[in-house]
């Protein structure tokens, strides 16, 4: 990719916060299991196993943040959108803009806090995500797709 971009660096904080979110959810689940153990004498090892899984999940989620950031790239070219991700399992996808059916911008509470947006690109067959972009980038993408779509209409006519 010639002009590829990394995701905005704030995404690292977003990922760390979402790891923290998983930790919170995990703690709630462990808490419920401990209560269940106390009141309905569910086996205690359920809570223990859940605890180990939660810790593992959070540790892995936190430790891969730099790699995820390092290898996640996207490019919005003249004719297509390219998305590249993964180190151990590397994927590189090209979606011609003329195949894009619609683009959805969405942002959960954490992304909103950082003023970022997720771009969801849908083709007739499948959907692809650019996990986070700055609002200007989202605007650029939208405008480019609209111009190209318009040009395609002219060709068709």
């Amino acid at each position: 990719m010639q002009t590829s971009h990394q995701l905005p660096s704030e995404i690292k904080s977003v990922w760390r916060m979402s790891a923290f979110g998983s930790l919170l959810i995990g703690i709630v689940i462990i808490g419920l299991l401990i209560l269940a153990n106390h009141f309905w004498s569910w086996p205690f090892w359920l809570a223990a196993v859940a605890g180990v899984l939660v810790v593992l999940d959070v540790v892995v989620e936190l430790s891969i943040v730099p790699y995820r950031y390092r290898f996640w790239r996207y490019a919005i070219n003249e004719n297509d959108v390219e998305i590249e991700s993964g180190f151990f399992f590397h994927h590189e996808t090209a979606i011609p803009i003329t195949r894009i059916q619609n683009v959805t911008l969405s942002a959960g509470p954490i992304l909103q806090w950082f003023k970022l947006k997720t771009v969801i690109i849908e083709t007739a067959a499948d959907r692809y995500e650019i996990e986070a972009v700055l609002p200007e980038t989202a605007e650029t993408l939208k405008v480019r797709i609209m111009t190209l779509a318009a040009r395609k209409d002219v060709e068709d006519a």
């Binding site: 151990f88 399992f89 590189e92 996808t93 090209a94 195949r99 067959a125 499948d126 692809y128």
Partner: peptide, 23 residues
Amino acid sequence: IQAATIQQSIWMKRVGLAHLAVS
């Protein structure tokens, strides 16, 4: 073809192989 993807794990990278998937 709605999209094309090159997939490659690090083990495949070593021997210069890749999957090509089209949607």
